[in-house]
Amino acid sequence: MAGSAAVLEDGSALSRLERALYRLEQVFGVISGLAVLALMLLAVFSVGGRHFFNAPLPGYVDWIQLAMPLIAFLGISYAQRDGGHIRMDILIGRLHGRPLWAAEFLTTLATLLLIALLIWGSWAHFGRSFDWDAPNWSRDSTIDIGLPIWPAKIIVPIAFGVMAARLVLQLWGYVRALVHGGDRPIGVPLMKSAAELAAEEAEHVSGLDR
């Protein structure tokens, strides 16, 4: 998996904005990864608590439900930045230059529309679970120990918001590519970039020779 190497950079406003957003995306990605780690430790505590102290972790399932959106959504834009969401490139892989950027522009625009509508929809989903006047601001709670669910639900529109920003930057990148032409535009994920992949590969393999 190609890591971060597939996006070209330069000193333009687009590239600087893109890198700023990438830093935020990386933070979100790490939080998402730490949540996986937390999930693992939670299970260890749950098993340990039950076997050694006859005290199962109360609300184990509830906590997992609250942690899952951290894992599942925070990294969505991070993955989009590198072109990590899978697709079928049997047709688009044959295109080059402006026709390719035009096609990319269109599907990215459609994705932006979807994400914008889903921000609305997921915000409404959050809104139904949130109430300024209720205890813990909660109008929806987990089944076992009654934890408020709104903190988990608000993660979705937040993550989608960052995703929308990423998509806008990518659209900008594709417009620039359409204007300038060529095969190596900045700020958008490129399908192949052997040199950078090789550099990263070297890094990984050196990690193995411990």
């Binding site: 109008r139 929806d140 709670s141 089944i143 009654g146």
Partner: peptide, 19 residues
């Protein structure tokens, strides 16, 4: 039900006390 996606539904109160 609140959205209006369907007209009738079943639910259990204990699934979500705060609702």
């Amino acid at each position: 039900i609140s959205i209006g996606a369907f007209e009738m539904a079943q639910f259990c109160a204990g699934y979500h006390e705060d609702k």
